[in-house]
């Protein structure tokens, strides 16, 4: 949508997306560099290390996945403010694979004078398997 929305614009059942995304190995390395000055082999950065932990390959850090889901919401409408985003990791998110983000509004209410929305957010693989599921509470800022 990429435009400001109002509280009244949203009905329960309205959807966000879908939006396609690939989280590349380069992006994972950039993310890990924020935390570590020297990147050590890990399940996030090294194929052999990941395989030694029983994974099929290196995976995307959960914090990065969460950030991507938050970005998906905030990109949709700039005047939304994410109050909470609570995620559940159901499956590993591999590097360099096609991902799809979708959201669906499940509740709307006004609390403490703030117009708020609740939204289920899903990060899926290309078979529509939900890899990460989340619930976000979003404040709709006045225009």
């Amino acid at each position: 949508m990429d435009k400001n929305i109002t509280f009244d614009d949203i009905d329960l059942g309205d959807e966000i997306g879908p939006s396609n995304k690939v989280i590349t190995t380069e992006q994972v390395f950039e993310f890990v560099k924020i935390l570590e000055s020297k990147i050590e082999p890990s399940r996030f950065t090294d194929s052999e290390f990941a395989k030694s932990e029983g994974l099929s390959g290196p995976i995307v850090p959960g914090a990065l996945t969460t950030a991507v889901m938050a970005q998906f919401i905030s990109n949709w409408a700039p005047n939304l403010k994410i109050k909470t985003l609570d995620v559940i990791f159901r499956h590993m998110v591999p590097h360099n694979t096609r991902l799809k983000l979708v959201g669906i509004f499940t509740d709307k209410f006004t609390e403490d004078g703030l117009d708020q929305l609740e939204c289920d957010v899903f990060l899926q693989d290309e078979n529509e398997v939900k890899l990460v599921i989340g619930k976000s509470t979003i404040i709709v800022n006045k225009k």
Binding site: L12, G13, D86, I88, T106, D107, E118, I133, G134, K135
Partner: peptide, 20 residues
Amino acid sequence: DDSRASVEQYVKWINVLRRK
């Protein structure tokens, strides 16, 4: 522990589905 839906929210959602 791995659910994020309350019973009240399920009820509200079923009412949405019924309206549809």
